[in-house]
């Protein structure tokens, strides 16, 4: 993977692909992506899959999007998962998602 970009391998990291996809799909006003794969390096499912050696399997996400307005948590998470469907197909294993609307974080 990542042969297209040649020298610009970093540009093709899963994290940056995720950023683009989420930004496009959800018009997020806040988008934090944190790779926490190392915390899960030892766990059973990860050891079983050799493709996951190079990490980028577990992420913490914080997304603030006006599109979450009026949506249940399940729906919000589904919207995130839908945007990242390809990644989930190709080795992205788990996301920890905080999905909020601009209003919900407003008072801060």
């Amino acid at each position: 993977m990542g042969s297209r970009g040649g020298a610009k391998v970093l540009q093709l990291s899963r994290a940056s692909r995720m950023r683009t996809k989420l930004q496009t799909a959800l018009e997020a006003s806040v988008l934090e992506i944190e790779d926490v794969s190392h915390q899960h390096a030892g766990h059973a499912a990860m050891r079983a899959n050799a493709n996951n050696k190079d990490g980028e399997t577990h992420f913490n996400l914080k997304v603030v999007s006006p599109k979450f307005e009026g949506q249940s948590l399940v729906k919000r998470h589904r919207m995130v998962y839908d945007a990242l469907a390809d990644e989930l197909q190709s080795g992205l294993h788990a996301l920890s998602i905080v999905a909020k609307t601009p209003q919900e974080i407003g008072p801060k």
Partner: peptide, 18 residues
Amino acid sequence: WPTFPQIFVNGELLGGCD
């Protein structure tokens, strides 16, 4: 829903761990 765990209540997906 692409990940586990998944919790169902009364036949409906409640969600995952988060």
